[in-house]
């Protein structure tokens, strides 16, 4: 015991002499490294866009075209369900632009004063069902394919906050098979996650937007079938500038660019129709 005490006291003396300088140096170094992270290096204007997940592939193509045209701006995109974007903007999220997969979320935010431009449609979304080519399933055999015993799980976006999920549920109800396939449904948080369930073979069939089915990744390995459009209410996608982005000239520029012919061309490439 005494030895421990002596050692402790001795150590204390030793440390007292040489520690402060070294400690000081190390701490300063660490502080400098971490504080430097807070200094913004680039002066480019940053435009943050929250976009519906069905734009996962189309929007980056549009924004990179935009950045080439306006090198002073930098666009950051965040993808998720439209409903999530809706609630995040209400909670004060720092997004300049909101691209929803349906008009209603943009309209509601407009009424609350959180979207400052009049809600504007930019595209019409198309619902498809998608299977992997190596599953041996034939998607054009819709809706009977859903009742096929080989189909154990059907991926669908959560209809509480994803417009494509809402449309898919409507389709199932219109065909009168919602109750029959209810136990097979697996819910994705948004359409991207829904697509990834089928892509990763966790589910056999999925209800996804045409825009995702036409992406490089999914085109290579899958087959899709366009669900007849009279079975669901049209998915008119709307957008607007948020209150947060109200005074940003970059946000205004990108807002205009999204309805330019160049942007429309890319939307078209991913299967979006003109609203």
């Amino acid at each position: 015991m005494e030895r421990t005490i002596f050692r402790a006291l001795a150590e204390t003396k030793k440390q007292k002499l040489k520690r402060p300088m070294a400690m000081f140096k190390v701490t300063t170094l660490i502080m400098i490294i971490f504080f430097s992270a807070f200094i913004k290096i680039s002066k480019a204007e940053l435009i943050r866009v929250y976009a519906a997940a069905d734009l996962q592939y189309a929007l980056p193509e549009i924004t990179s075209l935009y950045e080439k045209k306006y090198p002073q701006d930098k666009v950051e995109t965040i993808f998720g369900s439209s409903g999530k974007g809706f609630s995040q903007i209400q909670a004060g999220a720092p997004f300049h632009l909101f691209l929803s997969a349906d008009m209603s979320y943009v309209e509601k935010l407009y009424q609350m004063g959180l979207i400052v431009t009049k809600p504007k449609p930019y595209a019409k979304g198309i619902l498809v069902i998608w299977v992997r080519a190596d599953s041996g399933l034939n998607p054009s055999n819709f809706p009977n394919i859903l009742l096929d015993p080989r189909v154990k799980k059907i991926a669908i976006a959560n209809w509480e906050h994803a417009p494509y999920g809402r449309a898919a549920k409507e389709v199932l109800e219109n065909y009168g098979i919602f109750e029959k396939v209810k136990n097979k449904l697996v819910l994705g948080e948004n359409v991207s996650q829904t697509a990834s369930f089928v892509y990763s073979k966790s589910a056999e069939v999925g209800f996804i937007p045409l825009s995702l089915a036409l992406s490089e990744n999914m085109k290579k390995v899958g087959l899709y079938y366009i669900v007849s459009e009279d079975k669901y209410k049209p998915i008119i996608q709307g957008y607007g500038i948020t209150k947060y982005g109200e005074n940003s000239p970059g946000a205004k520029r990108l807002y205009e660019f999204l309805s330019s012919p160049e942007a429309t061309q890319i939307f078209k490439k991913y299967g979006f129709e003109r609203p």
Partner: peptide, 10 residues
């Protein structure tokens, strides 16, 4: 979060 997003993006 980046991993979650990457998986979603395939």
């Amino acid at each position: 979060i980046a991993i979650y997003d990457a998986v979603e993006k395939l």
